[in-house]
């Protein structure tokens, strides 16, 4: 059992439109309540945008602007600049986008916002596909995962969004997962102390899209971390790596075997996934160690 350090300020209302057991709504509740009421949000079309509404109801107690699918970071930039002009420098502008709206169609606008170092917090709810439109692949879909548009399994690797954003020199970029809520909350809190663009990728296992029982979201999320498929880490200023959960204890098979999207995997493919995860994990540990050494030597 783990106590979750969340002060719930009722900023996320019950009765919203998420599926039962939805991990995204769980993350949204934690993030909103950690940020607090002095905030305004931008959503592109996504599960999150559906969870917001429908009009005239809102499940969020902060104002929301829903923009187009490609433009979350651009719209957030415009909102930020307008609030600055109106003297609201301290209001947090937060983007909530899916992985399609982040890794794919919204990436150009995101890259530009990061390049300009817009003072926004960008949260990507990463469920590794276009779940709101029926579970098609995105460039966040992992190797060999089956989706509605890659029924035989996706032949290419998941895009390394964290590495790409780190290469922009973004002040703060981190991964988080719903199975590690205190880590998620701590990262949101930390991001609020930083000026400039901050990016948080939160793994939100999609029960419907991944083929999981309604009550399994949190445990699958923990397995994603324990298997090294979704390591918890943060990168500051593009180069200071910190591994927040330095303990890869499970084979990927323990994580993959629970999900319908990997049911077709043969031994060779499974070994391929395991090898890729081991390689990425080793690289991540090396970078974290180098950052620790660099800090020690001042």
């Amino acid at each position: 059992m783990q106590k979750i350090d969340l002060v719930d300020r009722d900023l996320f209302n019950p009765g919203h439109a998420a599926c039962p057991g939805c991990q995204e709504s769980l993350a949204l509740r934690a993030i909103l309540n950690t940020i607090g009421p002095d905030a305004a949000a931008v959503f592109p079309p996504s599960c999150g945008a559906v969870i917001c509404g429908p009009h005239p109801y809102s499940s969020l107690q902060i104002p929301v602007f829903q923009t187009s699918l490609e433009s979350a970071a651009a719209a957030a930039s415009g909102l930020r600049r307008a609030l600055n002009q109106r003297g609201k420098h301290d209001t947090t502008v937060v983007c909530f986008a899916g992985d399609g709206g982040t890794y794919d169609i919204g990436f150009q606008a995101l890259s530009s916002a990061v390049e300009r170092n817009e003072n926004i917090l960008y949260v990507c709810f990463d469920n590794e596909g276009y779940m709101n439109t029926g579970a098609q692949k995105s460039s966040s879909t992992p190797l060999h995962a089956s989706t509605a548009s890659t029924p035989g399994g996706k032949p290419s690797k998941k895009k390394d969004i964290i590495g790409i954003l780190a290469a922009h020199g973004i002040p703060y970029v981190a991964t988080a997962a719903t199975g590690h809520m205190n880590d998620l909350i701590a990262k949101v809190e930390k991001s609020l102390t930083i000026e400039g663009t901050r990016f948080l990728a939160v793994l939100v296992p999609c029960l419907d899209g991944w083929g999981l029982p309604d009550d399994s979201g949190v445990s699958v999320s923990r397995l994603a971390v324990d298997s090294g498929m979704w390591p918890l880490y943060e990168v500051e200023q593009g180069h200071r790596y910190t591994l927040n959960h330095d303990n890869k204890t499970r084979p990927v098979a323990d994580y993959l075997s629970l999900q319908k999207r990997y049911r077709h995997l043969d031994e060779t493919q499974l070994a391929e996934v395991q090898a890729a995860v081991d390689q990425d994990w080793a690289q991540l540990r090396r970078r974290a160690a180098e950052s620790t050494e660099a800090r020690a030597s001042g």
Partner: peptide
């Protein structure tokens, strides 16, 4: 920004924020 598309996206959000 990096494109007219983003320029207009930012314009809309800024306008709806009262600017």
């Amino acid at each position: 920004p990096e494109s007219e598309h983003s320029a207009m996206a930012a314009a809309i959000a800024a306008s709806l924020a009262g600017a």
